[in-house]
Amino acid sequence: MATPLNLKELSKKEVLLTGGHRMCSGCGAPPVVKMVLLASEYPVVASNATGCLEVSTCISDYTAWKIPWIHNAFENAAATLSGVETMYRSLKKQGKIDKEIKFIAFCGDGGTYDIGFQSLSGAMERGHDMLYVCYDNGAYMNTGIQRSSATPFGADTTTCPAGSAVPGKLQQRKDLTKIMAAHGIPYVAQASPSHWSDLMKKVRRALEIKGPKFMNIIAPCNRGWRSRTDDAILLSRIAVETCYWPIYEIENGVLRVTSKPKEKKPLTEFLKPQGRFKHMFAPENEWMLKVAQEEIDKNWERLLKEEAFTAQQEPAKE
């Protein structure tokens, strides 16, 4: 029987990403990985793209992973895992292995939205039985906080620095979760570690479905966001409550927002505690706050409409 998703029972399970790794204190990525692995009731083989998580968990001869783990390069975690998963299916067919094993890729936003997008898209289209998890902290944190296509509008990074000529990043972030949904794969979800039970339920759901699955999980980075060290979970919660990071799932085309804030908070509550948005609060940059809020509102309304629309299309449940 599956471990119930409550803290008492989960605390009895082995944590598969051990402490002692070199991720920064207060980083949002390790709790995300721990939650994903704790949720699984199956043995997991993980692949990892180059990034903070990869370099900090496999220093020298040591590994923080208590599961089989493979890293190749920056742009190809999904391709590498495609190879591993295909070999597994072949061995299974040959009768050399009978265990039910799940395959999960863990990659940051640089390795997912940007350089790894081609291999991700290919793996999803081919239909490999894997769950691809993007831990999205919104920049290339490992190399020194350069902008990525997941960096939110307005953010100050080392390659879109806020100065007198340019006030930070002028492009909106890519809506990767929707792009993955457009691949027509059976399961796509967005989650947040603040809503841990929701996150773990989504992982469980994903692992029960055969075929390619994608999850985008927000993972605050206090170095890049220039926020307080102990605010990762708080900020990921505010991200949900401001609808900056709506949490939802799309299963076989049916969209369901899994937690709707009772009262949608203004985006400034998410922006204010983060140093990367500080310049947006200067009087001459007020227009940026407006643009950022409008984008959030537009996306949130569209999401609700999509939910209502796809619910109508849903075949009646027996």
Partner: peptide, 12 residues
């Protein structure tokens, strides 16, 4: 350019 250590100062 594109980020990679140890040349990030150039794109930055």
């Amino acid at each position: 350019g594109y980020p990679i250590t140890p040349q990030n100062e150039i794109p930055e």
